[in-house]
């Protein structure tokens, strides 16, 4: 029996824009297994970022349920949601979302401060994580003093701070050049392989295809199709051969 880490049931999200109602998600049903690398693909406006927000408890669905580790997210208290974001999920965003007032090291320690980890321990862990993402020599630089790729590495280190079971990455390579983007994808894939962390990534970067176990194509707020790795490899071969 597969170990399901994320499950959505008929998830609907509507946004009210003046008198218009925009249906961003129109009943999404997906199941994600522990340790999988999933890419949510689709053009902009397809609803993939909205779905990403629902899975990460960054927003609430208008209708339907999201289950994570068999917990119904809509039944959680404010404190439980905060603890969930703090311990269970690591977020990586397109625009990095580092706190500009804190150094790389300060950004990585923040989730550990929220988790109540003692100072000495969290400083050591931050150093270890930053070294692992290749920023051992730039730990005390402010985000403004780092390149895009370096900022995204800080964000990855920060996402790993509290040993989450899920990494949620929203267009992590969209602001990066091809080579840097590739490096970031490889780093995320490496974490997926080595630590067995589940990776859920919203993307329309084709480089993400060949590292994904499954690809969920989202279109107009619905799951269009779900492709497995073996199907993907064939398609990547075709793309590469053109």
């Amino acid at each position: 029996m597969p170990d399901i880490v994320v499950k959505t049931e008929d998830v609907v999200k509507e946004y009210r824009m003046g008198s218009n109602v925009l249906r961003a998600l129109d009943g999404i049903n997906i199941e994600i297994e522990r340790g999988e690398y999933i890419s949510l693909m689709g053009p902009s406006g397809s609803g993939k970022s909205t779905l990403f927000n629902m899975i990460g408890a960054l927003d609430q669905p208008t209708e339907g349920q999201v289950y994570i580790d068999s917990q119904n997210m809509s039944h959680l208290s404010q404190r439980q949601i905060a603890a969930f974001r703090c311990h269970r999920v690591g977020y990586i965003f397109q625009s990095y979302n580092l706190l500009p007032v804190r150094s790389a090291h300060g950004n990585v320690t923040l989730p550990m401060i929220f988790a109540g980890i003692p100072e000495k321990q969290r400083n050591e862990k931050a150093e270890e994580l930053l070294a692992r993402v290749g920023l051992g020599d730039r730990m005390y630089h402010l985000p403004d003093e780092l390149s895009g790729g370096q900022r995204q590495r800080v964000a990855i280190a920060r996402a790993l701070a509290n040993d989450p079971s899920i990494i949620l990455a929203d267009e992590p390579t969209a602001n990066l050049d091809t080579i840097t983007g590739r490096e970031i994808i490889d780093l995320i894939k490496q974490l997926n392989n080595e630590q067995g962390v589940t990776v859920i990534s919203a993307t329309h970067d084709l480089k993400m295809l060949d590292v994904s176990d499954r690809i969920v194509d989202i279109r107009d707020g619905l799951v269009e199709r779900i492709r497995n790795r073996d199907e993907i490899e064939i398609e990547v071969g075709e793309v590469g051969g053109e």
Binding site: V5, R34, D69, S70, Q71, L76, S77, R79, Q80, A82, A83, F84, C86, H87, R88, I113, F114, A115, G116, S165
Partner: peptide, 11 residues
Amino acid sequence: QRAPIEEQIDL
């Protein structure tokens, strides 16, 4: 991972 979700602490 499978433990029920705890409550966030105050700082």
